[in-house]
Simulated assay, not measured.
Amino acid sequence: MKKLISALFIIVFSITSYSQKTSEEENVKQTIETFFDGFHSRDSLIMKSVVNEEIVMQSIGRNPEGELKLHHEDFGKFLKSIISIPATTLFREELHSYEIKIDGDMANVWTPYTLYVNEVFQHCGVNNFQLFRKNEEWQIIYLVDTRRKEGCDQRKLE
């Protein structure tokens, strides 16, 4: 009887633990999706709603001479550049998958992507988001991406 009770306890605890992890992963994913909802609608308030005030943004890519560079971007300038895109310009960053890792109040999200402007391929790469949970809400504290034109899935927007 003790073995049966122990087995049931382990099963219930495992299910509860798994559902909590899945729920947190969904919360983290929703934070990233909210960021991109704001990005695609050119809405700085939506983007700011899921970003910490001390966010760090960087990109890794090649300059016109082919030299690999790490570019630091000011988040305020980034927001201004997004909201200034004309309404007639269609742009979409297509996320292909999410790999989410969580340890307590820290999360890491890896999202391969392809960027299109007016349905024309621009570049692809990977976004890497670092988040932390502040007052039970996930906030993006760091975003670094890679940018390349080779080895990309150049699908058209659907």
Rank of each mutant, 00 (worst) to 15 (best):
K2T: 04
K3W: 10
K3F: 12
I5V: 13
I5D: 02
A7N: 02
I11C: 09
V12C: 09
V12L: 15
T16D: 07
T16F: 13
S17Y: 12
T22P: 04
V28F: 04
T31M: 06
T34W: 00
F36E: 03
F36L: 09
G38K: 00
D43G: 00
L45N: 13
I46Y: 03
I46L: 12
M47W: 01
V50E: 03
V50G: 02
E53H: 11
E53I: 09
E54A: 13
E54V: 06
E54Y: 06
I55K: 05
V56W: 02
I60T: 10
R62A: 15
P64Q: 08
E67S: 13
L68E: 11
L68H: 04
L70P: 04
H71M: 13
H71W: 15
H72I: 10
H72K: 14
E73W: 15
D74Y: 12
D74K: 11
D74S: 10
D74W: 13
F75T: 03
G76I: 11
G76H: 14
L79C: 05
L79V: 03
L79H: 05
K80Y: 12
S81A: 14
I83C: 04
I83Y: 07
I85E: 06
P86T: 05
A87P: 10
T88Y: 10
L90M: 13
R92A: 00
R92F: 14
R92K: 15
E93T: 11
E93I: 08
L95F: 13
H96L: 14
S97W: 04
S97L: 10
E99Q: 15
E99I: 12
I100H: 09
I102N: 07
D103T: 15
D103R: 13
G104V: 06
G104P: 07
D105S: 12
D105E: 15
M106F: 14
V109A: 13
P112F: 08
Y113T: 01
L115A: 11
L115I: 08
L115Y: 14
N118T: 08
F121G: 01
Q122H: 06
V126G: 03
V126P: 05
N127W: 07
F129I: 01
F129Y: 13
L131I: 01
K134I: 04
K134F: 10
Q139W: 08
I140A: 02
I141W: 02
L143W: 00
D145W: 13
T146R: 00
R147G: 00
Q154P: 03
R155C: 03
K156G: 01
L157K: 09
E158G: 11
E158M: 03
E158V: 05
